[in-house]
Design a protein around this nucleic acid. Structure first.
Length: 469
RNA sequence: GGCCCCAUCGUCUAGUGGCCUAGGACACCACCCUCUCAAGGUGGCGGCACGGGUUCGAAUCCCGUUGGGGCUGCCA
């Protein structure tokens, strides 16, 4: 126990990196940092049928995005479980020689038939005393001892399992390859892991794994099972049903810091009345003992609220830089030639308080870069329906042709036009806004007009007048 | 079905026997601000699943009920 803490994160590369995995990784990372320990990344790629190498890089990239940087001194790995197969098999044979495991030649079908006949589900220990040897199709099963297995869990306390409720589970498949339960433990022992922090779905595996630790003569680690993340139906987040890919949220324009902060608060809360806190504060305050015991709903609305806070906290230049990928994406409405960075730099402060995710930025500034206002039909119908709309626009065109070109005078001019007709600015700005921006909502109008310039503004008003005729 | 876990506003949580008339955040509603929409400010709505104990005193401890969830693979 005098050795430095060693934690591990052990994902299997079977798809896009999952937000639930991200939270588990973050808990491990935060703990490693506070405890002065090591975070070991181990890719559990022993499922021959579902693994694909490209997912591994995705995991590493996603972790890096979250700040779990493989260049950091507290990071170790990645290791690949498949590279350790020899050790897993050696351990299995040792368990057999010690009498902790035995060979069994029953097929899955035969086991099912026996279970059906006896009325008891699962494997009944049929081969326990048949003294079979290794052979084609023979699986090696752990001989679960009598008694009680007590798991000391840092988040849940003491959890007891009657061993008689645990069947003799498989260690080695019929083809000789090691299974998760075994490989996982052998690697943890081999890598001197001291803390196993993982999702609650692994709790039922824990007594089995603890038996393997003991049988292998090793001191079991400190266990900690954190609650699973669920969807609105309160079911565990699934890749099939739910939007769980971290990459997807990144593509939508969620900031890494916001994602990290939000994920950390799912099942845990920092001290005080605010949940928006720095990473260093979370590291300092995070305790497994204070992690909640019940499943947490992954609420995208709240994630986006956190993100909005983080966006507003960005300096103007950082915000501009953060927007770049969404301004130069292939699906933007304008051509690269139409885009003007200088103009965007001018308008960026106007939209920084108006977006929750960066993906919204492009559609909010498109009218600056398009040749014509991108008219939204519903907005047009709403703003141009008044009998005075055309008249106001007409006068506006004349006044704007000669007035001073700054947002204050542009506003004053329109205000005066409205006053003549006994209309508030809130009213008269509507047709002008739609003529210029195409929509009824958007960034402050007069600043936008100022940045757009006199020629293009007059052109858009004329276009609107023409359309109105 | 069996084993295990869990139970505070709709959601995420604070709360570890008296500071609780239960605090904050998201969402929602209202008002203020205001050129639209946001942002910001102020206020509001809204919760200890239920039933028994223990105790002078229970959201907090115990038991039961109910309700959720996880696992139950020669997947991880």
């Amino acid at each position: 126990m005098t050795s430095a803490p060693r934690l591990r994160f052990a994902p299997s590369p079977t798809g896009f990196f999952h937000v639930g995995g991200a939270r588990t990784a973050l808990y491990n990372w935060a703990l490693a940092e506070r405890l002065g320990g090591t975070f070991v990344l181990r890719i559990e790629d022993t499922d021959e049928s579902r693994n694909s190498p490209e997912w591994t890089q995705g995991i590493i990239d996603a972790l890096g995005w979250l700040g779990i940087n493989s260049d950091s001194p507290q990071f170790e790995g990645p290791y690949f479980q498949s590279h350790n197969a020899d050790k897993h098999i050696a351990a299995a044979h040792r368990l057999f020689e010690q009498g902790n495991a035995y060979w069994c030649d029953l097929t899955s079908e035969q086991i099912q038939e026996r279970a059906k006949a006896s009325g008891k589900p699962g494997y009944d220990g049929f081969s326990r005393d048949r003294a079979l040897g290794a052979g084609i199709g023979h699986v090696l099963r752990f001989r679960v001892p009598q008694g009680l297995t007590v798991v000391h869990d840092l988040v849940r306390g003491e959890v007891q399992f009657a061993n008689e409720t645990i069947e003799d589970f498989v260690l080695l498949r019929g083809n000789g390859s090691p299974m998760f339960l075994l490989a996982n433990v052998v690697d943890d022992i081999d890598m001197a892991i001291t803390h196993v922090v993982r999702a609650e779905e692994h709790l039922p595996n824990t007594p089995k794994q603890q038996m393997i630790w003991n049988a292998l003569g090793a001191q079991p680690p400190l266990w900690a099972h954190v609650p699973v993340l669920v969807n609105e139906q309160r079911k565990k987040l699934s890749k099939r049903r739910d939007k769980v890919a971290l990459e997807q949220y990144k593509a939508d324009g969620i900031l890494a810091d916001a994602m990290v902060n939000y994920l950390m608060t799912l099942g845990w809360a920092p001290h005080g009345d605010t949940e928006i806190v720095s990473w260093s504060t979370m590291v300092e305050q995070f305790r497994l003992e204070s992690v909640n015991h019940s499943p947490a709903f992954f609420d995208v609305k709240k994630l986006e609220a956190f993100n909005g806070d983080y966006i507003r906290a960005l300096s103007p230049s950082d915000f501009i830089a953060a927007c770049q990928p969404w301004l130069t994406a292939s699906d933007v409405a304008w051509t690269p030639a139409q885009f003007d960075v200088a103009v965007f730099a001018l308008v960026a402060p106007l939209i920084q308080t108006r977006v929750a995710v960066l993906g919204e930025v492009a559609s909010m500034v498109d009218f600056f870069f398009l040749a014509e206002a991108p008219i939204d039909d519903a907005s047009w119908a709403k703003a141009m329906s008044s009998e005075w709309a055309r008249d106001v626009l007409d006068e506006c065109a004349r006044e704007y042709a000669t007035c001073d070109w700054n947002h204050d005078s542009l506003k004053l001019v329109l205000e005066a036009i409205g006053a003549k007709r006994d209309l508030k600015l809130g009213k008269v700005q509507a047709p002008l806004r739609v003529a210029i921006t195409g929509r009824t909502v958007g960034p402050p109008l007069f600043e936008s007009i100022e940045f757009l310039g006199r020629d293009r503004t007059l052109g858009r008003i004329d276009a609107a007048l023409l359309r109105l005729a």
